[in-house]
């Protein structure tokens, strides 16, 4: 994905993760354009299994490039209900389409109000510039 891009319909965590709220208590998580760009070409994604519980601000997965490993931080807490299995064979989707086919997990949120602490697209971009 060539150019920086931060969709307005997502919420952002300052550790370069995004959340897309679905309904009252579900969300999809992934990493931002900035995160995948800093990491370089993703060669491996080591994600959690469905059913795992994840905690806001804690690591729940790892993404690897050839010479770096990055923890993926949960923007919100909850239980994993679906994982993106296609990343096992095609981790490059995280680079190619970080907000679409490169999504990581779908989560049933345990505290939907945590959304209030996340950043809007403009705020996140301001953070990146500073």
């Amino acid at each position: 994905m060539a150019d920086a891009n931060y969709p307005d319909d997502l919420l952002y965590h300052d550790q370069h993760d995004w959340a897309r709220l679905e309904g009252d208590d579900h969300a999809v998580f992934g990493i931002t354009w900035y995160a995948q760009d800093s990491l370089g070409e993703v060669v491996f994604y080591d994600g959690p299994e469905a059913g795992a519980t994840i905690q806001k601000d804690s690591s729940y997965a790892e993404v690897e490039s050839v010479k770096a490993v990055s923890d993926v931080i949960a923007p919100m807490s909850g239980e994993i209900v679906e994982v993106n299995d296609s990343l096992q064979d095609a981790p490059e989707r995280i680079n190619e389409d970080p907000y679409g086919e490169g999504w990581l997990v779908k989560v049933k949120l345990s505290s939907p109000t945590e959304a209030e602490s996340l950043l809007a697209a403009a705020e996140y971009q301001k953070l990146l510039e500073s």
Binding site: E64, K67, P91
Partner: peptide
Amino acid sequence: RRLDEVRATR
């Protein structure tokens, strides 16, 4: 020359 390390690891 420069080698494709991404492929070697993916």
